[in-house]
Design a protein around this nucleic acid. Sequence first.
DNA 1: TTGTACGCGTTATCAG
DNA 2: CTGATAACGCGTACAA
Lengths: 349, 349
Amino acid sequence: MRKRATIYDIAQEAGVSTATVTRVIKQDPRVKAATREKVQRAIDANAYAPSVTAQNLERGSAKVLAVVLPEMSNLYFSRIYNAAYWEADANGYSLRLFQTRENQPISREMVSELIRCRIDGVLFAGNIWSSDRRDLNDALERLKNYMPVAAICPPGVDLDCIRIHSDLVSCVRLPVRHLHTLGHRHIAFIGGSMQTKDASKRKYNFLEQLRLLDLPDDPAYHIEAGYDMEGGERATMRLLSSLERGRWPSAMVTFNDLIALGAMKALKKMGLHLPDDMAVIGCDNQFFCPYTDPPLTSIDLHPEEMAQSAVRELLLAQESSSQSFSMIRDATLIVRESCGAALGYRKME
Amino acid sequence: MRKRATIYDIAQEAGVSTATVTRVIKQDPRVKAATREKVQRAIDANAYAPSVTAQNLERGSAKVLAVVLPEMSNLYFSRIYNAAYWEADANGYSLRLFQTRENQPISREMVSELIRCRIDGVLFAGNIWSSDRRDLNDALERLKNYMPVAAICPPGVDLDCIRIHSDLVSCVRLPVRHLHTLGHRHIAFIGGSMQTKDASKRKYNFLEQLRLLDLPDDPAYHIEAGYDMEGGERATMRLLSSLERGRWPSAMVTFNDLIALGAMKALKKMGLHLPDDMAVIGCDNQFFCPYTDPPLTSIDLHPEEMAQSAVRELLLAQESSSQSFSMIRDATLIVRESCGAALGYRKME
DNA sequence: TTGTACGCGTTATCAG
DNA sequence: CTGATAACGCGTACAA
């Protein structure tokens, strides 16, 4: 491992001052061609590159944004990360990822770490909103003293920071209306876990939609399912086995595509055929949706755009210090074949 | 945005020197209880936390590892990242992700950036090995002057760095033997793109296996497919439509699970039924494998363990400067139902 | 037990 | 056009 050359070494070797070396590097025009060349030679000879750490200290900022996410098992989060990464990159910032341990919300240590690292702005996403409101607000208040804070969160979360909301109304209205149009009247909601703000919001909106469309609401039709395939599979088995066949719903709206995947497996195991015997709608429009059998109709929440906006606002907030901002990106229904719509089905009851 | 307190502010407020403040923070026992308390109060009052940037400058290292990956669309890479993240974390290091643009290999700028940031060790993964060997070696040589370098790469890559090899022999031998055992004789290989070291290695090993098992080798049976579902779907259509029905293979080994997903869709579109009409084996054992229809038999390359080893060796190499190391983690066949094995099928010809 | 003074590698300011 | 020098925030000898 070679010893790193410093700006002093270069200055000495070129017989100039450090200031001149900096000027050469910064392409400052007011430096004699001969001098420039001398310095450049020394730089090349030593493969010299200024230390970012020292630059950061001098500048008083490392030009780093942070994104705090629950462990990136779910592709939804890597989409957020990716979009944020390139948006930061485009603005000359780098992005550091902080992962929270297994469903643990933000810890005090993580907040400290964020502050100690002199992060220039932080974006939160994922279900950290379920944690104790007091703790969360404390953490936020502490952070806000030092950096702009943004969150991708359900609408109505009363956090005092830049809020980018996913459209949890459309997110459930769209599928319900779609199913209604196709003639379905008995629709189930297979959701996350209801302690979560996100899931409970969706369930609330779901019931609201049923009411609006004058559809029957059977309490047995909304059921917790966690956030992954296993959860979806189990929840579906539970739902169907707890009801006699005649009371089965004819369609299911799921919290996300992973749950839908599990649900579809359960349905197949029960001998049901999609979309004839059961319609299914997922959420997140993940990469595998076109490749399930049948291809899964889903909702796109546009996480990339949300992340991009978040980063932009974070960067803006650094100067204008307008810490308050709130926007909502509406959801889009992507119709495939898991409800039969693309096939021209129409449910008759 | 509050002005950050520095160690000077604290020292002044507590009426002591900066050295004492440091001692209190570092829990140095040789400091009078009264003084300690005074200082601690000042620290708390200002929510003071030492600047990591300054610490880094002083220490001469930021305790950062880097991992260079092609854009994380493929879950395979997030598994690597995640494992590396926690292993680094457990050792007091943080992990920075550098993504290469759309199939571009390592750029000169990225190498410079790595050096400028005083990264303490870098891990490469993904198909950057296809790039011009000269460029790659230059980049590596340059990097190795400043930090240990590790790579997760196909066996036989003659890179002079810490090499963690995925087992590209077992990775294709296992599926071929499995299929052979089940009575298949006409096996196709739907692979990445053959300019890639990885894919061409696998194809080579695939042919080797056919020879060993005395199976017929039809050139029409190996076909490029890229790396995603679309590629797999197209390749499969191409394969089948170019052959009259009698010459169709009875089984397909695919480069990865995404390709398998696409292939399964194509097969269904052609009216083929799995596993009766065609057996399929994927690679990577991704999360959705148990949820395809039928559940997809796949190979686990154990990317997590490879990443973990890589990080460990990187950390070790910092001191011992033993830059050369090479290990191989063998692959595991995960049998599900896409070949009928779990169902007790046996092909008769 | 505590304080002084310097180094870490840059950049910016001000003088020349 | 170029060179000293202070500052960035912290840790650490060394001294007291």
